[in-house]
Structures are given as structure tokens and as C-alpha cells.
Nucleic acid binder design. Structure first.
Lengths: 246, 246
DNA sequence: TAGTGGTCTAGACCACGGC
DNA sequence: CCGTGGTCTAGACCACTAC
């Protein structure tokens, strides 16, 4: 099933969550772990590399690895899908399509989705909520080749990601996010039940397939009193960068 | 000097930047790269793993690696330091301390900086700008053990990170960022030259040493018309997570 | 079916850290 | 000094892709 190094990484993560290894304490040496799990040192190194990338443990040449944190950051799957993220928190995701229509791709659409300008693309305006409370307004544009699979989905489908996976086998694999803050406009305020000019957290994102083919791009606006983003950085995974406005 | 796998990773990054390998094209097979660079397959794999974590290339078992992007995301050093980030963009970073004083650590300070409540900690309010235009308001609290090195720094020092490295050898290695949006308060508006209630991008962050010891924590507020954040995700480095407000 | 990446092994040497 | 992690090698087998 899963690779041996993944099993070992999981066991170590669980041990840290159980506080068998407490924050600040040292992990056993690579050779000891290798002996304990009956694998070679290389396999152990694959496992601990995953935890290091997650920021769970730190390492310095010559010294034992140190446990840095116990709470795992959310998984990639939870990031990709609003519904999966909600479920992981024990809350119920809701969704409601407000408007849905085909429009010819603008120049911007064409660049972001890597298709020809004028190609009909599907625009969807969707409000999403946690336990019924609206927290997110999504303005999404789907590429022409995936639109036929999106169009027939029921307006109140709680997880579009899951539906697309079930129907087409599509897995969202890579994404680029640009995060800033905007004042709520009239439509934003109305649909999110906040006052006009309230600060909203805006995330503009492009989602692609595992092969790098763009699937959708979206302007997401979150109620900032309800949702925030958390980014963890380490020397190994430098995923966050500041950007100036164009 | 640098490890061989890092040299190879650098060469591949440059080749992609030069568009020797264009977006969408395939990288040579691992065995070919190994032969070309005169190293073993394992070393090549270390190199391409770095590019994969950066989101530059994608891979699927059985198929050649594919080039996904050409522009590299900013380096970790640029993220950690406002001045280094500005310089990388060809702009000049400015800074001005507005207020600086010692206060006893609150319970929150004590938890975030892992020290005892009541310990005197250094609070610094600093405005930072790009080419003279204010874009960022930093409210930073420094741990007691680093405060003596921070206190004597000139109020208009453009790079505190660089000064601390020069003076004490301290390297910021890990950080946790929570990002949301807030409306500008009276002081925010005044110091950033924006109207009250303007949306600001807020980043609350904790910086630690490589060993995981907290150095400082800060409430940073960016003018959202001037700065945004960009996050790249891949299956390998899941650094971004949504968070609900507590 | 041949090629390719994913996984794993069993060694080796070096640089750094802690005692 | 000895233990540890960082690096590297030269092989092996398997699962999956592309043709």
C-alpha cells in the first residue's frame, strides 16, 4: 500500500501528536530509527525529510533532530477543498450558486487558463458557508474543457472538488495564490452579510492539474472576522513570498 | 563549497529561467542527468526534489518530469527580511522607529516568546517604506535575550535582520504567519497615510531561531494597495492553510 | 514492451556538535 | 573524541507511462 517511508513518517507524526516526543525534545538518531523500523538509513531520511518540510522537526548537522511543534498544519487536500477543510474542523460546509453563465474568455482569462481569447468559459458566483453562516464569496472561471462537467452540478452542492473527482477523476494538484485585502463592495456586503467597506481577505488563485494544465481561476473573498490564513515556513519549503501590487 | 546536488539544482533552475527548458517541456531522464553531471542517480534526485518542492517542475511515476513554471518564487531570505526583499525588487527599503519601550511580558507575550510573564520585553513600533512611501506598520515584541542587541540600533536602520546577523550572528530560520484583513485604525491611518477603515492586510508572525527558539513576534499591517502575498503550493510543500478566527 | 520515476539497500566519507 | 546528520554511490526491484 503506502510506501514504507510514509508509514514511518505517519508513525512519527502520531508519536509527536501523542506527545511521546514533546516539543523541544530530541528524536532518536537515524541509525536507531532505522534499526527500530527494520529499514535502511535512507528510508528513515525520506520519512524525517517530510516532517522537516512540514516544520514539525528541525535539524542541524551533528546534533540530534529536535521536535519544534506538535500541531500539524492542515493537509494539502484540506486547503484545496473548502468542504474537506470544513469537515476536518468538524463543521458543515454549505454552498449556493448565485449566478452561472458562459462568457467569451477575456484576454486575462485566456492568459490565466492558457486558452484562446473568445473561447466560451463558465463563470460561477458562489457563496459558501460554515454551518449556514456565509463566510466566502467565490467568483470562479472554469476552463472550457472542464466547464461541461461543472455546469450540471446542483447549485447547492457542498463540495465541487469532490464532485469533479467522482465524475471525471480530476485531481487538483498545484495552485498559486495571491493574497491581499479589499473593502467590501455592494454585492460583497449583501451576499456576505457585512457592512459596505468592511475589510475582506481576498485570495486570487489559479488551480491546475498535476501536469500543470490550468483548470480554473477564482477571486475568493473571505469575511475577515471568520477566516484567516496560516502559513508555515522553513528553510526547506519557502512557499510564501510578498508581492507588490501591479 | 556548496553540495553537488545544490549546484545541480541551481544549474537546472538557471536553465529553466533561460528557457532552455520551456514551460510544458520535459526534463531529461534521471539517468541521463546523472551521466551528464557525472553523479549517481540519488544525487540527481536530491536536486530535482528541490525544484519539485518549489513548484518549478512536476513529476508522475513512469513519465518524464515536466517544467511547470519559469519564474522562481522569492527566496526565503527575501521573505524574512523586508530590506532584502525590497533590494531584490530594485527598490530601496526605509524604516523609522516611532516608539520603543520595555514593558513586562503579558501572558500572551509569555506564551508566544516562551518566557515567564513579567519579564521585560522590548516593544517597537516601526514604519517601513519602499522608496520613501510608507507601506508597512510593524508592532514587534522582542524576547528579553535579544532585546539588548535590538535596543541600540539606530531608529532609521533599513535592515534590522541584517544588523542582528552582523552583530550577533543570529539567523532567522522558521516562522509562522497568520494572515487576515483589518480596517485601519486611527494610528494605522495616520502612519500609513491612508483613510480610516481602509482595508489593511495584517500578518501576525512569530520568528524563531533555527533551533525553534522564539525571537520576536509581530503584528504587521500592509497597505493593501501596495503589497500582497503570493503563496505557491504543491503536493510536496503544503505550507498554506486556512484558519478560522479564534 | 521499453523507458522512467518511486522506492529501498548497504555501504562509504565528511563536517559539525556535544561532551 | 565519538556520535550525528549531510552527502554520495552503485546497485536492485517495482509500478506506471508512453508508444
Amino acid at each position: 500500500m503506502a510506501a514504507r517511508h510514509e508509514e514511518i513518517a505517519d508513525e512519527l507524526r502520531r508519536a509527536i501528536d501523542r506527545e511521546e516526543y514533546t516539543v523541544g525534545s530530541r528524536l532518536p538518531a537515524e541509525t536507531d530509527l532505522a534499526a527500530h523500523y527494520g529499514v535502511s538509513r535512507g528510508t528513515v531520511r525520506q520519512a524525517v525529510a517530510a516532517l522537516t518540510a512540514e516544520g514539525l522537526i528541525g535539524s542541524r548537522q551533528g546534533a540530534r533532530r529536535v521536535v519544534l511543534a506538535s500541531r500539524r498544519s492542515q493537509s494539502f487536500a484540506e486547503l484545496r477543498s473548502f468542504a474537506q477543510w470544513a469537515r476536518a474542523m468538524g463543521r458543515e460546509a454549505t454552498g449556493q450558486v448565485i449566478a452561472q453563465e458562459y462568457r467569451p474568455a477575456t484576454a486575462e482569462d485566456a492568459v490565466r487558463l492558457q486558452l484562446r481569447a473568445g473561447t466560451p468559459v463558465l463563470h460561477v458566483l458562489r457563496v459558501r458557508g460554515l454551518d449556514g453562516e456565509p463566510v466566502l464569496l467565490e467568483r470562479t472561471v472554469y476552463a472550457d474543457w472542464i466547464s461541461p462537467a461543472v455546469e450540471p452540478i446542483e447549485p447547492d452542492c457542498p463540495s465541487v472538488t469532490q464532485r469533479l473527482y467522482d465524475d471525471t477523476g480530476l485531481v487538483f494538484a498545484y495552485g498559486e495564490h495571491v493574497i491581499d485585502a479589499v473593502a467590501a463592495g455592494a454585492q460583497d456586503a449583501d451576499l456576505l452579510s457585512v457592512r459596505r467597506t468592511s475589510p475582506l481577505l481576498r485570495v486570487r488563485r489559479v488551480t491546475t492539474t498535476r501536469e500543470g494544465r490550468p483548470v480554473e481561476w477564482s477571486d475568493d473573498r473571505y469575511r475577515s472576522d471568520a477566516v484567516s490564513f496560516s502559513v508555515h515556513n522553513s528553510m526547506d519549503s519557502n512557499a510564501l513570498a510578498r508581492k507588490t501590487a501591479e
